[in-house]
Design a binder for these strands. Structure first.
Lengths: 127, 127
DNA sequence: GTTTGTATACGAAATCATTCGTACAAAGAA
DNA sequence: TTCTTTGTACGAATGATTTCGTATACAAAC
């Protein structure tokens, strides 16, 4: 059914807003977008209409201002994009990606702890 | 100088080949590409010429068959793409990306060990 | 030397992502 | 009611990516 999610960069920006705020009107989304880039209102509208056509969004059109929601989960989208990165850029090795990510980005103690716990859990399940 | 590397998907396929095989002619690269997709020889040629224009590749044009090399390092490219993914899709949290990567992709014992060692090293350096 | 095969260069079509202008409908204020 | 604001719809320009056809040069085989 919902095979391959391949949002563009602009689409991803919109999805991020909907994931964090829940259902929104175009204006809601546009107001957030405006803070980081300048594009007109109709640009945002058009993008969201296209995303609706592609089934990335659902919408409630009963009111004058339509209310849009993400129709793909954040987790699943993250998963697909990570998989693509691993396949295309890390020769299929998740571990290589992990070390790149850890090496070049600040990660605080709490997060490192979480990762260690995660690793232990995996080991227990594995054997 | 070489600020932002943003290769397209096709360009990444070509870079991967050059990273793994070293300097290549267009034909060399094309023969590898052919195994996974069908596009004509001149398509590959044009792509590599464009990449040369963009400074993603260097070339030795002294012989009739020009010999191309990657002009961006694999590490740096990986780093940029990982950073972009973290920023755009994981709200800036490297740890979240790491756990996604570990959770959904098979990682064998050897690789897990490598990650654990890596984590320990980081801790030692950190405090 | 002519033919055949293999190069590069280059123009241009096809597709997609992004952007915006404009038309027009619906509410609400004057 | 009329004017202004705020919505949707939609066509179309722009720019980037991908693709290929064709022109032309060189080299090797015949």
């Amino acid at each position: 059914m919902n095979q391959n999610i391949k949002p563009t960069e602009s689409e991803l920006e919109i999805l991020n807003i909907l994931w964090s705020k829940g259902a929104c009107t175009v204006r809601d989304v546009h107001e957030v977008l405006e803070q980081n880039k300048d594009a007109g209102y109709t640009t945002t509208l058009k993008l969201m209409q296209i995303m609706h056509d592609k089934n990335l969004l659902t919408r409630d059109a009963s009111a004058r201002s339509h209310v849009y929601s993400a129709n793909v989960s954040q987790e699943k989208t993250q998963g697909q994009l990570v998989k693509k990165l691993i396949d295309n850029v890390f020769n299929g090795s998740a571990a290589q990606l992990v070390m790149q990510a850890l090496g070049n980005h600040k990660t605080d103690k709490k997060e490192l702890e979480a990762i260690k716990i995660y690793l232990k859990e995996m080991e227990n399940k594995q054997q």
